[in-house]
Simulated assay, not measured.
Amino acid sequence: MSIIPKTMKALVAYGKGDYRFETNYPTPQCGADDIIIKTEGCGVCASDLKCQQGAAMYWGGDNQPAWVEPPFIPGHEFLGRIVEVGENVRDFHVGERVIADQIVPCGQCKFCKTGRYWMCQPHAIFGFQKGNNGGMAEYVRFPKACVISKVPEDIPLSAALLIEPYGCSKHAVDRAQIRNDDIVVISGAGTLGLGMITYARMQNPKKLIVLDMIDVRLEKAKEFGADIVWNPSKVNVVEEIMKLTDGYGCDIYIEATGHPSSVIQGLNMIRKLGRFVEFSVFAEPTTVDWSIIGDRKELDILGSHLSPYCYPFVIENIRNGNLKTNGLVSKTFSIEDWETAFEYASGKYGDFKVAITFG
Results as ranks from 00 to 15, higher is better:
M1Q: 11
S2K: 14
I3W: 11
I3C: 11
K6I: 05
L11C: 09
A13D: 01
E22K: 11
T27V: 12
G31K: 13
D33C: 11
D34F: 11
D34S: 13
V44W: 10
C45K: 10
W59I: 15
W67I: 06
P71L: 03
H76R: 06
I82V: 13
D91K: 08
G95R: 08
R97H: 09
Q102N: 10
P105M: 08
C109W: 04
K113V: 12
R116T: 06
G127M: 00
F128L: 07
Q129P: 00
N133Y: 00
K144A: 14
A145M: 08
C146F: 02
C146S: 14
S149M: 07
P156Y: 04
A159Q: 15
E164H: 07
Y166N: 06
Y166R: 08
S169K: 07
S169C: 11
A176R: 02
A189V: 10
A189Q: 12
M196W: 03
Y199W: 13
Y199C: 02
K207P: 07
V210C: 14
D212I: 06
I214F: 10
L218W: 01
A221P: 04
D227R: 14
K234I: 04
V237W: 08
T245D: 04
D251Q: 02
I252N: 02
V263T: 07
G266T: 01
L267P: 02
N268C: 05
F276I: 04
S280H: 04
A283T: 12
A283H: 11
T286R: 08
V288F: 15
W290I: 13
S291V: 09
K297N: 08
K297P: 03
E298G: 06
L306Y: 14
G321H: 10
T340M: 14
T340H: 08
